[in-house]
Simulated scan of single mutants.
Amino acid sequence: MSIYDFNVNTLKGQELNMSAYKGKVMLIVNTASKCGLTPQYKGLQELYDKFNQQSFEVLGFPSNQFAHQEPGTSDDIAEFCQMNYGVSFPMFEKLNVNGEEAHPLFKYLTNKAPGILGSKAIKWNFTKFLVDQEGRVVKRYSPKTTPDKIEADIAKLLDQ
């Protein structure tokens, strides 16, 4: 099983196979629009702007599993992200990141990069997973790790 075996739905409801990102470095993030960490969208967009021309993608996956902080529809999410943070990186349909109903992509990510003390569960919005060009999950970042603190790790992968 590889990250490229999973299908996800864009905010417009179109199915996309993750193999579309083969050969790219990816930062996969579970997001929310009504969270204290929501301003991280700005930093994520800055990373995307800085590295996108070097085969880098930020992939945003909204989730309403944490204190119902992503209550809107796909259209609401798209409008909020664009109007407030100028988000132009790919965003996907709202999904579950934990539990029985967790999307298989997030089950895969949490198995490959467990959290503190081996925990598989995602603790909060804006947990981030860095994936290399070969599809390997290389690092998991806590929700409080701001995008600027990840920049050096991204640059290092892109320079290889």
Rank of each mutant, 00 (worst) to 15 (best):
G13D: 12
P71T: 02
N125Y: 03
L16W: 13
V25Y: 08
L158I: 14
T10V: 11
V97R: 08
Q45A: 07
Q14T: 15
G60W: 03
D76A: 01
F51N: 00
G86Y: 09
V97N: 03
S19I: 02
Y141T: 00
V87D: 00
K94T: 04
E79F: 09
M91Y: 07
I28P: 00
K94C: 11
F89P: 06
A102M: 09
A32T: 11
V87T: 02
L44E: 10
G72C: 04
S19W: 04
A152F: 11
C35A: 14
D49W: 12
A78P: 07
S33V: 04
N7G: 01
Y4E: 05
E79L: 11
H68W: 08
E93D: 05
E57D: 14
S142L: 12
D5H: 13
V138M: 07
I116K: 14
I116T: 11
S63R: 06
Y41F: 15
M83K: 13
L59S: 04
S142Q: 15
Y48I: 07
Y48W: 15
C81N: 07
F66H: 08
Q45S: 10
E100Y: 15
P39G: 14
V29I: 03
S88P: 01
M1D: 15
W124V: 00
G36N: 03
N111D: 15
V97W: 06
N98F: 05
F51I: 02
I150W: 15
Q82A: 15
I3V: 15
Q69L: 06
I122S: 01
S88V: 13
K156L: 10
F51L: 01
Y85K: 10
W124E: 02
D159K: 12
A32R: 07
T145F: 10
F106S: 03
P143D: 07
F106A: 00
K22L: 10
N125K: 01
N7C: 03
G86K: 13
K42M: 04
T31Y: 08
V8L: 09
K50L: 12
I28Q: 00
K24P: 02
T127P: 00
N84Y: 10
L11C: 05
A155D: 13
C35D: 15
A113T: 07
S2I: 08
H103W: 08
E57S: 05
Q65A: 05
R136G: 02
K94D: 06
K128Q: 04
F126A: 00
Y85E: 09
K50Q: 15
K144W: 04
I3N: 01
L47Y: 04
A113H: 08
Y141E: 00
A152P: 02
G86N: 15
P71S: 13
T127K: 05
F126R: 01
E57P: 02
N9R: 13
N125F: 04
A78V: 09
S2V: 07
T73M: 05
V137K: 03
P147H: 09
L59Q: 09
D159H: 13
N17R: 09
I122Y: 00
K22M: 11
L37K: 12
